[in-house]
């Protein structure tokens, strides 16, 4: 087996185990045998409904969103050659948050539960377009434009919170931003996955370019890499996939930051080879985090973004310590 391939196999193994396990874990206790039976029989028992209408779409979304975060984090770290790059870098997650907050602000979420993800998508696309408008010309320009868009959009989110029509609405908005996969249906899957799929395909085409960028922009350009095209495709790919992912789950941090770091040493730090294992690991981590929100007994729903931050932040401390040790 080619060196490094086993991390992909390992990540896939963890992902499959987590995916199967996630079907057996939940607030409603369904005995394991019932779960298996629920898959096989056509009659609508409580078990089969819990399984096919609640847990399965939730697992599918967790995989799609986690893979998106892991992949886009790896692509953006490769593109910017900055280990701190994460999926929210280009402002699209903030855009999605603003769209969702607007839908809650005007009470649209109560009229139709898909208004929130749909407006989130619109917000993500608008933010991505704004980043594109101001971020042409260079990688640093793109990052700065992303930061400016995040800042501006964040201000509007704060404004919405500030003038929330009711304290309940303000609470809803804040909660949405903490991220969750609870009560997501097949409709959410249908809204998000087409965008996620297109975004992932676009990001995957950048593998060769981000490898060449290991040598810096001048050498990458001399090797035939079209830097402008690479940046634009990265923005479109991240805009579609992360925009759609954030629209349905809310903000989920750290996965996109951490997954590429975990796989990198196992693939000889070659950027293109971090993409697949990072996506698989991102999916596995998000599934595990979502299971944790269901398993840990709490009165209120434990939010997904809280768990990923609690899991991710210690990892970053470890990364800092390791850097201190290896730094010359």
């Amino acid at each position: 087996m080619k060196s490094g391939a086993w991390i992909t196999v390992a990540a896939l193994g963890v992902l499959l185990l987590a995916a199967v396990a996630s079907l057996f874990v939940g607030r409603v206790h369904v005995p394991p045998m019932e779960v298996i039976r629920g898959f096989r029989s056509d009659d609508l028992t409580l078990a089969s409904i819990v399984l096919t209408e609640l847990r399965l779409p939730r697992a599918v979304l967790a995989i799609a969103v986690g893979a998106t975060l892991g992949l886009s984090g790896a692509v953006l770290q490769g593109l910017t050659r900055n280990p701190l790059a994460e999926p929210g870098l280009l402002g699209v997650s903030s855009g999605a948050a603003l769209g969702a907050v607007i839908s809650i602000y005007f009470g649209l979420a109560q009229i139709w539960n898909l208004f929130t993800p749909l407006l989130g998508l619109v917000g993500a696309m608008a933010a991505g377009a704004l980043t594109f408008l101001f971020g042409r010309g260079g990688t640093l320009t793109l990052i700065l434009a992303g930061a400016a868009v995040s800042g501006l959009v964040g201000a509007f989110v704060s404004l919405a919170l500030n003038f929330a029509p009711s304290s309940y609405a303000a609470y809803e908005m804040s909660l949405w931003m903490l991220g969750s996969l609870a009560d997501r249906s097949w409709d959410h899957v249908l809204v998000a996955t087409p965008f996620i799929a297109i975004g992932i395909v676009i990001l995957a085409t950048l593998a060769r370019a981000i490898d060449a960028l290991s040598l810096g922009e001048a050498q990458a350009a001399s090797l035939g890499v079209d830097l402008d095209r690479t940046r634009i495709l990265a923005l479109i790919g991240v805009g579609l996939s992360v925009g759609a992912a954030t629209s349905v789950t809310g903000s989920v941090g750290f996965i996109g930051l951490v997954a590429p770091h975990i796989v990198r040493p196992f693939v000889g730090h070659q950027p293109s080879r971090t993409l697949l294992p990072s996506a698989l690991l991102g999916a596995a981590l998000l599934l595990l985090a979502d299971m944790a929100t269901r398993v840990i007994p709490t009165n209120q729903e434990l939010r997904l973004g809280v768990i990923t931050a609690l899991m991710g932040a210690p990892f970053f401390f470890w990364l800092v310590v390791r850097l201190q040790r290896t730094a010359p």
């Binding site: 050659r81 960028l213 290991s214 040598l215 000889g268 730090h269 070659q270």
Partner: peptide
């Protein structure tokens, strides 16, 4: 002064 940005082989 060409540089390599990741610790690749």
């Amino acid at each position: 002064s060409p540089r390599v940005e990741w610790p690749i082989s």
